[in-house]
Design a protein around this nucleic acid. Structure first.
Length: 567
RNA sequence: GCGCCUGUAGCUCAGUUGGAUAGAGCACCGGAUUUCUAAUCCGGUGGUCGCAGGUUCAAGUCCUGCCAGGCGUACCA
């Protein structure tokens, strides 16, 4: 809807410049692309153009003067039936300001009312596919708060991209082999022996958390393991391996349960073990070698990462023969490329940023377009309880898990707080605030607007004994109050906001928008009564409220948060 | 040392492709409910946009240098 108005304005301006030069009012100019902006101060109209400043030197006169000429050529064409009803020229800087016809706004609102829940959809990503890989935590312990934020950012971005027309898949990469898994097995094994009364040192590099002891408790001596053998009959090496796979299976189950409670649904799970077993890793190492991107040094196999923008070369196969994490990651990402996605997004913590160059470099070395692979770095979260900073030392094993946060504040508040700030910003997450049912809590502020509107509807049907009107058929022309038009203008911005949040990978724009919209509505609510004497006016205002409710519901749905009917 | 991120009100943070007088919430002060939910609203106090240059008609936004904080700089992931 906004786009159509913008086209109209661009056309009016372009024609005006043509006329101006035809009539010798201005010298001929070659117009740069005409950009429209929404003025911060609504005394400046609904849309503004800075074109007079852009062409100042070409037109050889001050911007304000050019603006005046353009104004005089456009103004006569405006009337109550055009999309634009008013145009002004700013005498100081030279902006040209346009005011939209209320009937244009009413028609936009009607579109929302006719297909609620779909207003935010756009075609920006039409025909494009995207794969978002996030969390991908080793199944060696509970998910952390850092994973929680990555999950929320990744999941919401996936929803946003879907709204913007992309076909989206979510995936979890399971790093279920290698060194970390060995350490997990050993940690559980050692704890188990300690439980059996042995006095043993527990090395610092082992997993320290309490959960390891609980896992160890779950393995009795007579537990039947492979081929009729009992656990107590295994050799030490077999026992450690068994402990590892036993623990990771349980931990993976916990992770899956946690994701479900957090409202994240993965479309795929890719196992590193299976990737290696299928020979994908050896195959990609062969390809890199063929392309001359690897070499042997000190008994290890190296990738020439420094030829692709990394600061140094990287090891693919250690001198002992073990593969590094990088090799399977290269294979995995090559496999992702093979699936033909237009965009491949990985969500990582800031501690992995040094890894970007080598991974993108490896794709380039394989002849793939590194531009398709986007690494999204999501900054860390510090938990607070009011003013008190909570300890999150992983080494001590006393970090706060995502599970604890979920139990404390619930899914809605947790997701909301995780995406509320720019992903580049370090996040301070105050549990006390997220838990509080007060006006300080922005989640409730937005949800309350939704519930409040529902309450108006309920009141209306109770009071009048009538059903709600057919919103798409209501005469909206009664909505003429500035605050009513303000609400509609905000609703109109929604699809563009979704599109921009999706394309710039900035999910935090959505909560900010919803808080704005809720504020505009709460203010309107306190200023005007929806249910009044005049049935037509009441119907129009109910329709306006319905429009707000539909957009808030759609926005909350994208955030993966409930839209309560009452609070 | 080098690389990435950050630096905006007392606190937590927004700030669109560079645009008009830098915004919000919290905190603090003062108000609003015989009527649709006060988890709301209205008003007020509060700023060298880290510092210094540069580009531009116009810089919180772009460029350069510096300062401060976080993270990284493994044959760990």
């Amino acid at each position: 809807m906004y786009l159509k108005i913008e086209e109209t304005i661009v056309k009016l301006i372009t024609e005006a410049f043509q006329k101006a030069s035809d009539r010798d009012l201005l010298p001929p100019v070659s117009l740069p692309p005409i950009e429209l902006q929404i003025p911060r101060d609504n005394a400046h109209g609904d849309l503004a153009s800075n074109i007079a400043m852009k062409v100042a030197s070409q037109a050889r006169r001050p911007p304000a003067e050019t603006a005046k000429v353009i104004l005089s050529l456009i103004e006569p064409e405006l009337n109550q039936d055009t999309e634009i009803v008013r145009i002004e020229a700013d005498p100081r800087k030279g902006f040209i300001n346009f005011t939209i016809n209320p009937s244009t706004l009413h028609e936009a609102l009607r579109v929302i009312l006719l297909s609620p829940g779909q207003w935010g959809e756009s075609k920006a990503g039409e025909g494009k596919t995207a794969l978002l890989e996030f969390i991908s935590a080793n199944p060696t312990g509970p998910l952390t708060v850092a994973h929680g934020r990555q999950a929320a950012v990744g999941d919401v971005l996936a929803n946003l991209m879907k709204k913007a027309g992309f076909q989206v898949d979510r995936e979890y990469y399971l790093n279920d082999r290698g060194r970390q898994m060995k350490i997990l097995g050993s940690s559980v094994y050692l704890r188990r022996r300690q439980l059996h009364g042995e006095e043993l040192d527990f090395p610092g590099e082992y997993y320290q958390g309490e959960y390891i002891i609980n896992l160890a408790r779950g393995i009795p001596d007579d537990l039947p393991v492979a081929e009729g053998k009992k656990f107590s009959e295994l050799s030490e090496a077999e026992a450690i391996e068994y402990c590892g796979s036993y623990a990771s299976t349980i931990l993976l189950g916990m992770i899956k349960e946690e994701l479900r409670d957090f409202g994240v649904k993965m479309d795929g799970w890719v196992s590193e073990t299976e990737l290696v077993a299928a020979g994908d890793v050896e195959k990609v190492l062969g390809e890199l070698a063929e392309r001359g991107s690897t070499y042997e040094k000190d008994d290890a196999l190296w990738f020439r990462a420094s030829s692709y923008g990394d600061e140094k070369d990287r090891v693919l196969r250690k001198s002992g023969g073990d593969l590094t994490y990088l090799s399977s990651d290269v294979a995995y990402h090559q496999e992702k490329y093979g699936r033909g996605y237009s965009a491949i997004l990985d969500f990582w913590g800031p501690d992995h940023h040094g890894y970007i160059a080598r991974l993108k470099g490896s794709m380039e070395a394989l002849g793939l377009d590194p531009g398709i692979l986007e690494i999204v770095i999501v900054q860390l979260t510090t938990l607070y309880e009011g003013k008190k900073k909570l300890s999150m030392s992983t080494r001590q094993g006393e970090f706060i898990s995502l599970r604890q946060v979920l139990d404390e504040v619930g899914k809605d508040a947790a997701r909301y707080f995780f995406v509320r700030r720019r992903k580049e910003s370090h996040l301070d997450f105050d549990l006390e605030l997220a838990r509080s049912q007060t006006n300080e809590n922005p989640v409730y502020y937005v949800q309350y607007a939704h519930a409040r509107i529902n309450s108006i509807f309920k009141k209306y049907t109770e009071k009048t004994g009538l059903d709600l009107p057919e919103f798409g058929q209501v005469d909206l022309a009664h909505l003429r109050e500035p605050s009513e038009l303000e609400v509609i203008k905000k609703l109109i911005l929604f699809p563009g906001l979704i599109e921009s949040a999706a394309l710039t990978r900035q999910p935090h724009l959505l909560p900010a928008y919803l808080e704005d919209l809720a504020a505009i509505f709460h203010s309107y609510y306190n200023q005007h009564r929806v249910i009044g004497e005049d049935p037509e006016m009441t119907a129009a205002r109910l329709a306006l409220a319905r429009g707000v409710q539909a957009v808030i519901a759609e926005g909350l749905d994208i955030l993966g948060i409930s839209a309560p009917d009452s609070m």
